[in-house]
Nucleic acid binder design. Structure first.
Lengths: 263, 263
DNA sequence: GAGTGGTCTAGACCACCAC
DNA sequence: TGGTGGTCTAGACCACTCA
C-alpha cells in the first residue's frame, strides 16, 4: 500500500470526472513513478541536492516515498535520460553538473570542418549592467527596463575569431557578476554560473538564421562586411523551464559548421 | 533458464578476456535485453515486419526468445525511444513509418517566424540520372561515377520560395524513380521512398553553414545575388546507419528560422 | 564485504481498444 | 470479453566501487 497512489494526485479515470470540465482533456491519470519524478524534480529545483552531489540511493528513496525500488528506478531513469541526473554504477546517482563534462562546451554545436575539436580561446570584450530592451525582456520573462547583465565575448580557434557572443542574463539572478570575475575564470561559462550563482542550465532552444555581417560584427570576426554569418539565438532554461539566459551568437562557418542530429 | 544468456553472445567479464586484446576495451558484457533489441533490429532491417505493420505482442516475443515479458519490454522501449517502433496501448506495437505523421515534414526544422507552420508547396525543377561526383559518392558510401538520381526542387511557403533542395539518391536503391513519379506524388518525399522503394529514413545528420547566394541560387529563391542563405547538408541513414540520401538545402531565413533544441 | 546501480523474473492489476 | 500495452511489486542475482 503505497503512501502515494494514482488517486492521491489525480483520480483514476474510472471515478467521477471531478474537476475536468467536459471537453477539456485534463490529465486523466498520473502513474506513481511520474509523481515520484515530480517530487525529485522539485527537490532538485529547491536545492535539496546540489549539482555534483549524490542523491539518496534507490532503496532510501523507495523507503521515503513508500514505493518499490522499481518505481523509483523508473522515475530516476527518466530524469537521467533528461540529463538532470547521472547514474554511476557502484557509486550512486548524482545531480548533473557542467563542472565535470569532458566536452568543454556541451551546448556549442560548432565543429571544425576537419581535425579534432580543440578547445577554444576566449576573449572578453564587454561586461556591464544595463536595462533590458523589449525583445530581451520578453525572451527572459522580464519587464522592459529590468536590470540585465550584458556580456560580449569572442571565441577563437587556432587564434582565428570564430564566434561572437552577446549574452544577456537577468540581473536579479546574477548579482555581483563582474568583468573581473568572468575574465579571471577558466573553464566554461556555465560552470561559473552553476558554482557561483546556483543557476544550472538544463536545456536550451536555438533559432538559427543566415545573415550578412555589419561593420562592427565584421571587424570583430575579421571578415568582410556583408560576409554571410550564422546567427544563433539561444534561450537557456533551468528547472521548471524558466529562462535564465539569452545568447545571440554569430558564427563564422568558413572553417566550421553547426552539426545537428535528427531523430 | 533463458535460451539467450549473457554468455551466449559475450562472455561475462569474469571469464578469460578471450578475444579482447589487452588495451582494447571491447564489449565486456551485453545484457539480455540488448541482445533481444539487436534481434528485433535485425528483423526490422530484414523486412520481417514492414512499416506500419504490427510486430508480435510482448508475450509472443517473450515466448519466442524464451525470456520474460519485462526483458522484451525493455528492448522494445529502447527501440520506441529511437523512433523505430511506436507503441499504442490496447492495440500493439507497430513499425514506425513516415506515412502517418501529422507533422508533414518530420526532418524539416524550418519554422515561420510567426504564424503556424502551414504546409509548403513543392515545385520539381529537375530529376535525372547522373554519375556521382567524388564528394557525393563519399558521403553515400559509393564509388565515384556510380549511378545516382539527382533531384532539384523548390519549397514555397505562401507562394514565396523558401527552400531549394538538391537531392542525391543511390541509383541502385531507387530504380525507376522518374520525374513523372515524383511530380505526381502528393505528400512527403520520404513517404514515397518508403512505400515505393522500401527505403525508410531512420535518422539524419546535418551540417549547417551560412553562405552567399550565387546567381543560380539567387534566381531560384528570388533573392539578390550575395544574399545570405542557410546551407543545410543532410545525410539520411536507414537501418544499420547505412546512408541512403544526401540532401543539400538552401534556406531563406528572412521569414523563417531553423529551430533546434539542445538537451 | 558492504553498498550501489543493473538485470531478470514472475505475477498481479490497470487502462485502453476492438469485437 | 479478451488481448494489448502500462504500472507496480517483491525478490533474486550480477557488476561495479570503495574501504
Amino acid at each position: 500500500m503505497p503512501a502515494l497512489s494514482a488517486s492521491s494526485v489525480f483520480p483514476p479515470s474510472g471515478s467521477a470526472d471531478s474537476a475536468a470540465a467536459p471537453g477539456e482533456a485534463g490529465p486523466a491519470f498520473s502513474p506513481l513513478y511520474r509523481q515520484i519524478k515530480d517530487l525529485l524534480t522539485r527537490s532538485l529545483q529547491g536545492g535539496e541536492w546540489k549539482p555534483g552531489e549524490a542523491i539518496p540511493s534507490e532503496m532510501e528513496l523507495a523507503a521515503r516515498y513508500k514505493v518499490s525500488q522499481g518505481t523509483v528506478r523508473k522515475a530516476v531513469d527518466e530524469l537521467a535520460t533528461e540529463n538532470l541526473l547521472v547514474r554511476r554504477q557502484g557509486k550512486g546517482t548524482f545531480v548533473a553538473t557542467h563542472a565535470e563534462e569532458q566536452t568543454q562546451y556541451r551546448f556549442l554545436r560548432l565543429t571544425p570542418d576537419e581535425g579534432a575539436s580543440g578547445g577554444m580561446q576566449r576573449r572578453l570584450l564587454d561586461c556591464r549592467r544595463m536595462r533590458a530592451a523589449a525583445d530581451v525582456a520578453r525572451a527572459l520573462g522580464l519587464k522592459s527596463g529590468d536590470p540585465v547583465i550584458f556580456v560580449r565575448r569572442l571565441l577563437l580557434g587556432d587564434g582565428q575569431p570564430v564566434v561572437l557572443d552577446d549574452i544577456f542574463l537577468p540581473g536579479a539572478l546574477f548579482k555581483g557578476l563582474t568583468a573581473e570575475r568572468m575574465g579571471g575564470y577558466r573553464g566554461p561559462m556555465y560552470r561559473l554560473f552553476e558554482s557561483e550563482f546556483g543557476v544550472r542550465m538544463i536545456r536550451a532552444e536555438e533559432k538559427i538564421r543566415a545573415l550578412a555581417a555589419d561593420e562592427v560584427q565584421a571587424a570583430a570576426l575579421q571578415v568582410a562586411p556583408g560576409a554571410p554569418l550564422l546567427s544563433v539565438e539561444r534561450l537557456s532554461l533551468t528547472y521548471g523551464d524558466r529562462p535564465v539566459e539569452l545568447r545571440r551568437g554569430l558564427y563564422r562557418t568558413d572553417r566550421h559548421h553547426y552539426r545537428n542530429e535528427l531523430m
